[in-house]
């Protein structure tokens, strides 16, 4: 297909979906680098301890819990295990779930310059119907947990259902990757 035809097709596609969400970026020939969970982690490998951030049950801040994951040198595999553990919820009384019920991780990519892109199921935003307090804590539970346990990750971009979003729940800008906030 010529460049002109491609551009025309893009313009037509745009006209068709103006006002509605854009098509999800399907993994084509130019799929992002380092796809997560490419190979299953070998459960017999040595374990390593990670720190997860959850909203506190009593205060306006994040609290930590530790977990064991399979030790792996691959950042995307490590980050995926961190998020899977985070999504399965807190174990202690002092913490609340970090994400709305039913939220699953679709994929995690890690770029060369320290940016991770985490793609979640729609429950992440559909379930965030409250105030900015909940939204900020959910957001930074994810960002802090990834940045604290995967040294290669400096900031985290969030996608929902494969799509970029302006906000998760109407307040906090997630159009670009966010650095962690250790003070939360």
């Amino acid at each position: 297909m010529s460049l002109r035809a491609l551009l025309a097709a893009a313009a037509l596609a745009l006209a068709g979906c103006a006002g509605s969400p854009p098509a999800a970026p399907e993994g084509g020939s130019k799929a992002p680098a380092a796809p997560a969970a490419a190979a299953p982690v070998d459960p017999s490998s040595p374990k390593t301890e990670i720190t997860l951030y959850f909203p506190s049950a009593t205060e306006d801040k994040l609290v930590t819990e530790t977990r064991e994951i399979v030790d792996t040198a691959r950042p995307a595999e490590r980050g995926t295990q961190v998020l899977v553990a985070l999504l399965s919820g807190p174990q202690g009384e002092g913490a609340l779930p970090a994400v709305p019920e039913g939220t699953t991780l679709r994929q995690l990519w890690i770029g060369k310059s320290g940016t991770a892109w985490a793609d979640f199921s729609p429950e992440l935003s559909d379930g965030l119907v409250g105030g900015s307090d909940d939204e900020l804590l959910t957001l930074y539970a994810i960002v802090n947990s990834l940045a604290a346990n995967v040294p290669q990750i400096k900031r985290v971009g969030l996608l929902v259902g494969g799509r970029e979003r302006d906000t998760l729940g109407g307040h906090v800008d997630v159009r670009r990757p966010l650095p962690p906030r250790p003070e939360l």
Binding site: A18, A23, S113, G157, R165, D173, P177
Partner: peptide, 26 residues
């Protein structure tokens, strides 16, 4: 949220890692 490094990288990585999205409204 607006530190220079994050901004610049966001601009670069939006192009590098989301080529399919370049022309979408979102």
């Amino acid at each position: 949220a607006t530190d220079d490094e994050a901004r610049t990288l966001a601009a670069l990585e939006n192009k590098a890692y989301a080529p399919q999205q370049v022309a979408t409204p979102a």
